[in-house]
Amino acid sequence: MSPAGDAPRTRLPFDAVLTDLDGVIRFYDMSYVEELERAAGLPDGATAGIAFAPETDLPLMLGRIGKTEWVESIGAGLARGHGLDAARGRELGLALAESKFWADQTVVGLLQRARAYIPVSIVTNATPWLDEDLALLGLAGLVDDVVSSAVLGVAKPDRRVYETAAARVGAAVTRCLFVDDREENVSAAVALGMTGVLYRGPEDLRSALAPLWGPTPD
């Protein structure tokens, strides 16, 4: 029973927040890669186009290869697609793999606030060195759980990723808010009954989380 004079607590709109990492919390500085691309006569984004193509990226995201093998595969792709020599291709691959990154502190603050109400989990298609990256970002204690494709062995939008993430924070799949910057990942979550947010900026997250604390922030 609520204390005298207090209104009964309204049921929260969802029981857990599941959020992507890259493109929502973490962002990369690609300026050095772009500098190397220009020096090599490549268009901006050529290296990323090779690196994040499924045939190059998926083995890494599933934990089947490490950074060295990934860099080599990027170099080989640049050689095939752009005629670069092996040394230049590896240089670009390594520069991308070791790009500097940063966390959006507005998003971090919103997730910290949400965690005062319900569990928050990072659910990400990630490299095998995700834990090191989270420590470098200062995010090791930001969330209640981390679901990494490289550990799980399956990647979004496979339904097993979403089901595992929900189960690990003790929430029903249909009672989760899922946030991601890729439409196919959000669509897969919605198909399972989750509330989906296609992330384009902090206001998308702020609006989605507002029902937790009401229309007027503390």
Results as ranks from 00 to 15, higher is better:
L134I: 03
T106M: 05
P128R: 11
D158E: 13
A171S: 08
L152Q: 11
K156R: 12
P157K: 12
K156V: 10
L96E: 01
A172W: 05
E132L: 11
G141E: 15
V154D: 01
L136K: 15
A171N: 08
R113L: 12
A165P: 01
A155D: 01
L130S: 09
A150F: 11
L130E: 02
V154K: 06
D133I: 14
A167E: 06
A172P: 02
Y117P: 02
A114S: 06
G138C: 13
L142W: 12
S99W: 00
T127P: 02
N125E: 05
D158Y: 11
Q105G: 04
R160W: 05
G153P: 00
S149L: 01
V146Q: 06
A165W: 03
G93L: 13
D144G: 12
E98K: 06
R160A: 12
L94Y: 13
A165L: 06
Y162N: 00
V143D: 07
L134C: 08
E98W: 02
A116T: 09
T106Q: 14
A114T: 03
A95C: 02
A155F: 00
S99C: 05
L110E: 00
V120R: 00
L130N: 07
L134P: 04
K156L: 08
N125V: 13
P119Q: 09
V147H: 01
L110V: 02
L111W: 04
E132N: 03
K100T: 04
V120E: 01
L152I: 03
V147W: 06
E98Y: 02
G141R: 13
A135T: 13
W129R: 15
D158T: 11
D144H: 13
L142V: 08
G109F: 10
V154Y: 05
D144V: 13
K156A: 14
R113S: 05
L130G: 01
A155H: 07
G153F: 04
A103P: 07
D145P: 01
Y117N: 03
R168D: 01
F101C: 05
L136N: 15
A167H: 03
R160V: 02
S149M: 00
V108C: 09
L137V: 03
V108M: 13
L111K: 08
D158L: 07
R159Y: 10
G141F: 06
A165D: 05
E132K: 10
A97C: 09
V161L: 07
V108W: 10
K156N: 11
R160H: 04
G109S: 14
T124Y: 05
G153C: 05
G141N: 12
A167P: 00
T106W: 01
V107C: 09
A140F: 09
S121A: 15
L139S: 09
V147G: 01
A155L: 00
D145R: 15
A135C: 09
Q105S: 13
R115N: 04
L110P: 00
F101A: 08
R160F: 00
V154L: 06
